[in-house]
Amino acid sequence: MTRPAYTEALSRSGVLSRLAAFDPHVAGTPPLGLDLPDSDIDILCHAPDPHAFAAALWEAYRDLPGFAMWQWQGSDRPVVARFHCAGWLFELFGQARPVAEQLGWRHFAIERRLLSLGGEPLRAAVMARRYAGAKTEPAFAQVLGLTGDPYAMLLTLEGLDDDALNARIGA
Rank of each mutant, 00 (worst) to 15 (best):
A134N: 08
S116Q: 15
R129G: 03
A5C: 06
A68F: 12
T29C: 03
P138F: 06
A96F: 07
G94N: 12
G74W: 09
L114D: 09
L32M: 06
Q73P: 06
G119W: 00
E158Y: 04
L114V: 10
A164L: 12
L64G: 08
M1T: 14
A68L: 11
G170H: 12
A86D: 08
G28M: 15
A55P: 02
R112E: 08
R97I: 10
A60K: 00
F53L: 11
A124K: 07
L89T: 15
M153H: 11
Q73H: 11
R82F: 02
P78D: 04
E8Y: 07
L144M: 07
D76L: 10
E111P: 02
I169R: 04
A52M: 08
V80S: 08
D23R: 00
A132R: 13
L34S: 03
L16Y: 06
L19Y: 06
D49E: 10
A124L: 10
Q95E: 11
V143W: 00
I110A: 00
E8A: 04
D163F: 13
L10S: 00
P121H: 10
Y151E: 07
D149V: 00
R113Y: 05
G87F: 15
S39A: 12
L146Q: 02
A47S: 12
F22E: 04
D163P: 10
L36V: 12
A125Y: 13
G118T: 15
F90M: 14
P121F: 06
A56T: 01
A109M: 03
L89P: 08
L89R: 14
A164M: 15
G119P: 08
I110K: 05
L154Y: 09
H107I: 05
Q71D: 07
L165P: 13
Q73S: 13
A128S: 10
R18F: 01
L114P: 10
R130Q: 11
M153I: 01
F22P: 09
W58I: 13
G133Y: 01
D76G: 07
F108S: 01
A52C: 11
F108Y: 15
L117N: 06
E158G: 11
T29A: 03
V79R: 00
A141K: 02
A47W: 02
I169C: 13
A27G: 07
G148N: 10
F108M: 03
I110P: 04
H46E: 01
V99T: 07
A152M: 04
S75T: 01
L16E: 04
A139I: 01
L10H: 00
V26I: 13
Q102Y: 14
A139T: 08
L92T: 14
P98V: 02
R113V: 13
L146F: 14
D76S: 08
R106L: 05
L34N: 04
D63E: 15
E158V: 12
D149E: 13
R97C: 15
P138N: 07
L57T: 11
A141G: 03
R12L: 05
D49H: 14
T7D: 03
A109T: 08
L165A: 06
Q71G: 06
A54K: 09
H84A: 15
W58G: 14
G28Q: 14
G148R: 14
R130S: 12
I110Q: 09
L89G: 13
L19W: 03
D161A: 09
A47F: 02
D161M: 10
